[in-house]
Structures are given as C-alpha cells and as structure tokens.
Design a protein around this nucleic acid. Structure first.
Lengths: 233, 233
DNA sequence: GCAAAAGTGTTAAATTTACACCCATGA
DNA sequence: TCATGGGTGTAAATTTAACACTTTTGC
C-alpha cells in the first residue's frame, strides 16, 4: 500500500499576519502581490506549502523571506478552507500570526515585495478572504494579550513602562490609569529595572526595563489580568 | 490563467475530537479504524476533505456520520502539518473539537465504526499524531471553559446545578465549593430555574435548570470566571 | 520658570474565599 | 429515623478601581 489513491489532493498555503508596534500604533505588514490573480493589490505575506516542509516551517520561511527575522513569535491562528476562497483553484490556507519588534525589520529585504506597514485599524482592501484573516488576528491578539504577556514580543529588548502602556492602550483601544498599570505590571515579576533611561519620550526620561526571561517563560501560560475590564473581546 | 500549475497538491483531512459527559467523567469517542494502515487500532473520527466541501463541512459531515448529530458545538482546533505524520502519504489534518450531549448520541449509527467512549484521562494509544491532537483538545476545553460557558454544550437541555458542578470538577480535576459555585453560576443570568426536579441523584431531588438562550448567545464571548484559580491551564 | 512626561501611595468598593447548618425524602 | 445529597448566608480577606500631587529637566 503506497498511496491513498482515490483521494483528491489540494493546494495548501500559509498566510502570515505580521504585526508590529511603532510606539504609537499597532501595525500590519502587507505586500503588493506580484503575480496573478490580484497582481498589484495588497496582500498578506504567504505562499504554498512545499512538499518537504511542515506547515510551521512554511510559515517561518515566509516570515523570514519578508522580514529577515527568525525565531520570532509565530502562532498558528486558523485554517481557512472555503471551497471558493481562491478563484483560480481551490486552496486551503493556514494562517499564522507573528509579533515582531518593528525596529528589527530590515527594509532592504522587503524591497522585493514592496512591503508596507499599515495601521491595523486602517488596513487597505485585501485580496480573497484575507480581510477575515486579519479580523481573526485582531481578535486573537486581544484575547491572548488580555491574559498572557505576548505583547512584549512587539517591543525591543529594552523598553520603558510608558511605552508598554501605550502598547496596551493601542491594542485594547482604551485608556489605562498609569498608576494602576505600573503596579500591575511590576507585580508580575516579569520586569527587571535597568540603570539607564530612555530620554526620547520626555525630558526627565523613563527608566528602561527588560524581561526577566526566566519568569517570562515560566509564567507565560499562566493567566494574568493585564487589562482592567476585558469584556469587549 | 487557470491553475497554479507548478505547485504540489496535498491530501487534506479533518479529524474530530468528540467529547461527551456521562454525569461522572469526561469522555472521548473513538473508532476502530477499518482500513490500512493501522487497521483495527483506535483512532479519531476523520476523513479526507472532498473537493466540493469546505473543511468545516467536512468536519460536520464526519461528525454526523459517526454520531448522527447535527448542529452541535464544533470548533476548529489546530492544523497538524508535519511532513511525516501519516506514513503512507503526506496528509495535513485540520482538527476540530466537538462537545455533544452524550445522551443524544445514537448507538446504532456508530455500529459501523465500532465506536466507543473512553475516559479522556485514559485514552488508549491512538494512531499517528492523534495523541497530540487529543492533548490539544484537552488543553483547549479547559482554557475555553475557564472563561466561556461552553460546557453547557455537554449537558442535556434540562440539567441540575450539582450535575453542572460535577462537570466542571471533572473537566478541571478540582473540587469546588458548592455554595460558591451555585452563586457564581446563578449570578451569570444564564440559567432559568424550572419547576420540576431530577430525582435520580438524590431522594430530595435537585431542581432542573435550562439555559436562557438569549443571554447565552449574548454573553458567550464575554469573559466569565467559572473557575476559582485557573492557573493550571 | 515652565511645560511635559515620569513616577508614586492611599482609600473605598467590589469581588472572592472560607466556612456550617438545615431541608427533604426514600429506604 | 436516618443516611444522603440539595440548598442557602455571612464575614474576612483580597483584589481592583479611583484618584492627585511631586519630580525632573530641556527649552
């Protein structure tokens, strides 16, 4: 017995929803599609799964191709399998969402793809059912970040508490009291205070912190309340 | 342009992790696989995705084939895509997990598959990477049930609070104070008290409740604390 | 010296936990 | 009558929410 001979085989693709944070706004990295159909339109980075790679590998490969980054936060999101989602030929797409430090993103690598960052809230029209994919990612990042410390993946190694707060406020589209926020965050034991300050944001400067990686990995799966009233998920 | 001509096509399957509750234990429905490879071994219900059906439809079809049930809680879980997970031929599998009222499950339908319920905690050895799939489902049901009222899907239309509590205790493998539990559950506004009692569990009998469907759908996405200390997820 | 952002502490309110007794009934 | 599971309330502890002033420093 060598094959499941009577079964139909399908195209399988991965699509990556790549999110970054520029200090103000949560952004998504899109490319200009360079082949038909929908050539020239904005699209997620993605491509077909190759015969000798797993789907996780395919997602990582695509992410690296576009951003030059490896080892970043990448999580399988959902698989889209409507029969007509690709008008050319039936293609099932496994979506992944990636959180990257936007500063590490290397422009030159992406020149080939004409990639651009867009505010997640003002994403241009996307091809096929990709709008739906982005919507799923938006929900998932909120859902997960309300309970797990994933948003640190969007920041550089050194970051300040005001930066972190802006990030949370941007993801949840809400204002958070800074006194309560810093208490809450510091109480997790996830942060290590550094000696130097970031003077970019203010004259006085804000202390840098970095993640306590030990605690970070240990507590990653634990449920933490980072958001006051996480009802609007 | 008619096809993505240079790409390789793959087999795509769905596998269903079907969970039920018999009043004591959380159980999983497995079948005896009736074709090679691994013929005669325990397996999840599943099958190949057909060309004219979506993957959601494929999952629903499989679920109906085995249980006779339609319209039950069915949620896409994860897609497994390692290259060698099926030794015969590369097959990517999209897993779904289903929660059903075990009483509605129709035995005669499943005779063809030699289906059997097993305690989720004592699942027999499964084929391929299905052990991993079941593990993912176990995690997901806890994760989701800690915050969303999905466990009602496992109960009949009429159920008692002690039954509900046993279910939660069984899923989370923990003892819950019955006073606090009933307060918590009743506070959600999800339950309607009925006039009659279930006399099966005790001499005194316990009042039946049913879901307030209006509130159930409205609050389904909201985050609720059903479990005292949801740390062990 | 002043504008602009950083940093910090207390009090009230709400939520969560712990805990024990009476009730109804079939055997 | 008694054994079994059903049903309920209160007080303490914890957690969360609300809120305002001082510090630093570049201009």
């Amino acid at each position: 017995m060598h094959k499941y001979s009577k079964q139909t085989r399908l195209l399988l693709a991965v699509d990556c929803i790549i999110l970054g944070f520029d200090g103000e706004t949560l952004k998504i990295l899109l490319i200009k599609r360079d082949f038909q159909p929908e050539k020239g339109n904005w699209s997620l980075m993605g491509g077909f799964v190759q015969p000798e790679e797993s789907i996780d590998q395919a997602a990582n490969r695509n992410l690296k191709q576009l951003t030059g980054l490896q080892g970043v936060y990448l999580e399988q999101l959902h698989t889209f399998g409507a029969t007509k989602r690709d008008p050319i030929e039936r293609t099932v797409s496994v979506t992944y969402f990636a959180l990257i430090d936007i500063n590490k993103y290397q422009t030159q690598l992406s020149q080939d793809y004409h990639a651009e960052w867009f505010p997640l809230k003002r994403t241009p029209k996307l091809i096929f059912d990709q709008q739906e994919m982005v919507e799923a990612a938006r929900k998932q990042i909120r859902y997960k970040a309300a309970m797990h410390p994933i948003l640190f993946e969007l920041l550089p190694t050194k970051f300040t508490i005001p930066q972190l707060q802006t990030l949370y406020e941007s993801v949840f589209n809400t204002a958070i009291d800074k006194r309560n926020f810093s208490k809450r965050v510091l109480a997790t034991g996830l942060l290590i205070k550094l000696a130097d300050k970031d003077k970019a944001g203010s004259k006085r400067g804000a202390f840098y912190y970095q993640l306590n990686m030990q605690n970070y990995y240990a507590k990653f799966q634990a449920i933490m309340n980072f958001i006051p009233n996480p009802d609007t998920l």
